[in-house]
Simulated scan of single mutants.
Amino acid sequence: MRYRRARTLLFAIGLFWSWLWLGSAASMEGLYHSPVHAALAVYALAVAVLVSIPSALLGVITMILTHPRRSAVVVALPLMRPRPVERPHWWYGEKAS
């Protein structure tokens, strides 16, 4: 499961970087009338870029360390029966108003 999550993270980061290279300038162009919004958007993109680099490295490391084995055997584990719920000693039931 961790392998799939890491792979999905890398895919999402790849989509972000391709959007950044291909389409982010067009979205920044739409903010030209408000310099505050443009500055916030540039700051948000800079933070997202800086966060995506170590996230991608951790995703690659996770994929390498948790790569699924081809010769693995799936073992069916017995289901646990739910234990009956015990009421605490201070439970008053119907007596409480």
Rank of each mutant, 00 (worst) to 15 (best):
A6Q: 01
A26W: 06
A72P: 00
I64W: 07
I64P: 00
G23L: 11
H33T: 14
V36R: 14
G30N: 10
A96D: 14
A38C: 03
V85I: 12
L65C: 08
G59R: 00
R4N: 13
A76M: 11
P54V: 05
R81N: 10
L45N: 02
A96C: 11
E29C: 05
K95H: 14
L40T: 02
A44I: 04
L9S: 08
R69D: 11
S34A: 09
A56R: 01
Y32E: 14
L58F: 07
L45P: 00
L58I: 05
W21T: 11
S24C: 08
G14A: 04
A6V: 01
L10I: 03
S18K: 13
L15R: 04
V49T: 10
H89L: 14
S52H: 05
Y32N: 09
R69C: 04
W19K: 08
S18E: 09
A12W: 00
W19A: 15
I53E: 04
Y3I: 04
V75E: 13
A56I: 01
T8V: 08
V85G: 02
I61V: 14
W90V: 11
S18P: 00
L50I: 07
P82G: 03
T66P: 00
I53N: 03
L22K: 14
A76R: 14
R7K: 13
A12P: 00
A6I: 01
F11D: 08
A26K: 08
T66A: 12
W17S: 03
A26R: 10
H37K: 12
T62I: 07
A12S: 09
S97A: 14
L77G: 02
I61R: 09
H37G: 11
G14Y: 01
A96K: 12
Y32L: 11
I64F: 07
A46Y: 08
R7M: 05
V49Q: 04
K95D: 15
W19R: 07
V51R: 09
K95V: 15
P84D: 02
A12V: 00
Y3G: 02
M28L: 15
E86P: 00
Y3C: 06
P68M: 06
H67D: 05
L57K: 10
S97K: 15
I13Y: 00
H33R: 13
W91L: 05
G23V: 05
V60G: 01
A44T: 12
L15M: 09
M80W: 08
S71A: 08
I53W: 05
Y43V: 15
S18L: 05
A38N: 11
P68Q: 03
V47G: 04
H37P: 04
T66N: 10
S97Y: 12
A56K: 01
L31C: 03
L65P: 01
A25P: 02
W19H: 11
M1S: 15
L77R: 12
L40K: 01
M63E: 10
L20K: 03
R87T: 14
V85K: 04
H89A: 15
R69W: 03
P78N: 09
I61T: 06
A44E: 07
R70G: 10
T8Q: 08
A39H: 09
S18A: 09
Y43D: 10
M80H: 13
A25V: 08
